[in-house]
Simulated scan of single mutants.
Amino acid sequence: MNPKVTDYISSNIKWQKELEIIRNVLLELPLEEDIKWGIPAYIYKKKNIMGLSAFKNYCGLWFHHGCFLKDEINILINAQKDKTKGMRQMRFISVDEIDTDIVKQYVLEAMANSEAGLEVKPKKNTNPVVIPEELNIQFSKNEKLKYKFNEFTLSKQREFCEYILSAKREATKQSRIEKIIPMILNKIGLNDKYRNC
């Protein structure tokens, strides 16, 4: 039992019973328990299998490669159909909805699928990084900033640029520039806090 997961469950008072029931099923299996992206994560043979999480209106399991699960009783949800290819959710709104045998069956299938190498591999973005004019202006003023930016991977460079380009108002673009300059100088990616949990 990972104490960080215990803390996560204890802090989610509304869904505490439901999370504990699901967790007890997971702890019976040969899964490593950790915290990733701010939620409990369950790893099998060094591969992320699923996450356990609570939201305002429900709690549940997130199967990273759930699209490969048979789901014969049709309980899995693809919450972001246009964005998520592989992830599927099993949601609960009360203790009464949790059938521990079904949860265990789905988890065991997910583990078997992982061992079989079934996974959705993200497509690599090969498009060139489009640097916004506002950021180019900052680069011309600060050579160190440009140097540090170029040390990031292309995907992290793209995240910074898209963050600025997605702002509609000029004032928003400027506030975002002000936010990311210290991050770039300190070698902190825009979304690192989500990756390193």
Rank of each mutant, 00 (worst) to 15 (best):
P3L: 03
K4I: 00
I9R: 12
N12F: 01
I13Y: 02
I13Q: 11
W15H: 09
Q16K: 15
K17C: 10
E20D: 12
R23H: 12
V25L: 03
V25P: 02
L26M: 03
L26G: 04
L27Y: 10
L29F: 04
P30L: 06
E32W: 01
D34W: 04
I35Q: 09
I35T: 11
K36M: 03
I39E: 10
P40D: 09
Y42R: 03
I43C: 08
I43V: 14
Y44A: 15
Y44T: 13
K46L: 11
I49W: 06
M50K: 07
S53L: 06
A54T: 10
K56F: 10
Y58S: 14
Y58H: 15
G60V: 02
L61T: 07
L61V: 11
W62S: 11
H64Q: 13
G66N: 10
K70M: 00
N74Q: 08
I77E: 11
I77L: 08
N78E: 10
A79Y: 01
K81F: 05
K81Q: 14
K81N: 13
T84C: 07
K85L: 14
M87V: 14
M87N: 08
R88W: 05
R88E: 06
R91D: 06
R91W: 05
R91E: 03
R91P: 09
R91A: 09
R91K: 14
F92K: 06
D96F: 00
D99T: 03
T100A: 13
I102Q: 05
Q105E: 15
V107S: 00
L108A: 00
E109M: 06
A110N: 02
A110D: 02
A110L: 08
A112E: 15
S114L: 11
S114Y: 01
S114I: 13
S114R: 03
A116H: 00
G117K: 08
G117F: 03
E119M: 12
K121V: 15
P122L: 15
P122G: 13
P122C: 14
K124C: 09
N125H: 10
T126Q: 09
T126Y: 07
N127A: 15
N127G: 10
P128E: 13
I131C: 07
P132T: 12
L135P: 01
L135Y: 01
N136Q: 12
Q138D: 09
S140L: 14
S140K: 15
N142A: 01
N142Q: 12
N142V: 06
K144T: 14
Y147A: 15
L154K: 15
F160Y: 14
C161A: 07
C161R: 13
S166R: 13
R169H: 04
R169W: 00
R176A: 07
E178P: 07
K179D: 12
K179V: 01
K179N: 09
I180H: 04
P182W: 12
P182E: 10
P182C: 12
M183D: 07
I184E: 04
I188T: 14
D192F: 04
D192N: 10
K193Y: 06
R195Y: 13
N196H: 02
